[in-house]
Amino acid sequence: MSKTSSKQMKKLSIDILLGGVLVFGFTALVLLIAGAPVFATLKNIWLGAFASTTKISQVLSVWVPLTLCACGLLFTFRANLWNIGIEGQVIMGAIGAMAALRIPGIENPVLITALAFFASIIGGSLWGLFAGLLKTKGGVHEIFGGLGLNFVAQGFILWLIFGPWKRPGIASMSGTELLPRELWLSTPPGWRVSIGGLVIGVSVLILTWLLLEKSMLGLKLTAIGQNPRAARLYDISPVAHYLQSIIIAGGCAGIAGFLQVTAVYHRLIPSISSGYGYLALLLVMLAGYRISLVPFLALFFAALNVGAIQLPIVLQLDSALSGVIQGCCVLSTLFIIGIRQKRKQS
C-alpha cells in the first residue's frame, strides 16, 4: 500500500467515524426534542427489524424493491441524470404487471406471472423513456419532466383504482380486488419475502455491477456523465446513452412495481410504490453513487422502515420519526461529502 493511499484511507476512516458521530448526534438530538428515550428508541427499531426470522424476512421484502430502484438509479446517475421520475416508473411497472394479470383466458399461473413480469419492465421503461425524450427532444430538465410524470402516474393509478379496475360495488383507497392465491409469488412458511423476489433482487444487483463496472456501457456512461461534449469526440452519443440509461432505470423500477403487486400487496393500491423510488434516491446519494455500498445501505433503510413500526406500538411515538432519522443520515453524509470536496478544492 503506498503512502498516499494509506493517507487517503486514514482520511476516509476519519470521515466515516465523523459521519457516524454526526448521524448519531443528530438522531439523538431529534429524539430528545421529540421527548423520546434515545437508547430505547434505537433498541426497539433494531429489535423490530432483526429480532426474529419473520422480521428479518420482512426487512428483506423492503430491501428487494429498494435495491432494485437504487440499481436503476446507479445507471442514470452515472450518466449524470437526476431520475426523479423513478417513483412514477415503479407505479407504471405495477400498473403494467396488473394489466397483464387481468388478461382473461390465460389459465397457467406461471405464464401469466411471467407476462406480468415483462409487462412491468415495459411499463417502467416506457415511463423512463418519456422522461428521457422530454429531456433530449424537448429540452425539459429530467427533474421537472420526472416530477411531472410522477404526478401523471399517480393520477393514472388512482383513476384505474377508482374507475375501471375498482372492486365490484366499491371504489376505495383499499385498491383493486385481491389477486387469486395462485398468482401470489410464493413465500416459504414463516417467511414474509418471496424467494423469487430475492433472486430477482440479487440478480439485478449483480447484473448492474457487471454492466457498470465491467462493460463498455459503464465506461461510456461515465464518459458522458463527466463530459458529454468530450464524449461526442469519441463517437459516444450522449442522447442515445441518456435514453438507454433511463430506460434501464425504468425497467428496474418496473420490476420493483411488479414485486409490490405480486409479492407484497397482492393487489394494486394507490400508494403501491411505498415511496421506495424517492427513498432510493437518498440511498444512492448516501452511497456516493457506489454500487458496493448500495445493498448495505438498502438493508439499513429497510431495517429502519420495518423496525420503526415498533415506535408507536412500544413507545407510543410517531413512526414518522424514522423518516427524520433517515433524513439526518442523508444530511450528515452530504455534509461530510461537501467538506471533503471543499478540502480537495483547497
Binding site: 423490530g48 429480532a51 426474529s52 419473520t54 422480521k55 420482512q58 423492503v62 383507497m173 385498491g175 414474509r192 407484497v264 400487496y265 393500491i269 394507490p270 400508494s271 410504490s273 411505498s274 415511496g275 421506495y276 422502515n305 420495518v306 413500526i309 415498533q310 406500538i313 413512526s319
Partner: peptide
Amino acid sequence: PADRPGVTIPFLVDDLVS
C-alpha cells in the same frame, strides 16, 4: 397504506402476536 407505506396487515399482526 398512505400513512404507513410498505406496511401490511399480516406484517403488523405478526408483530402483535410476537
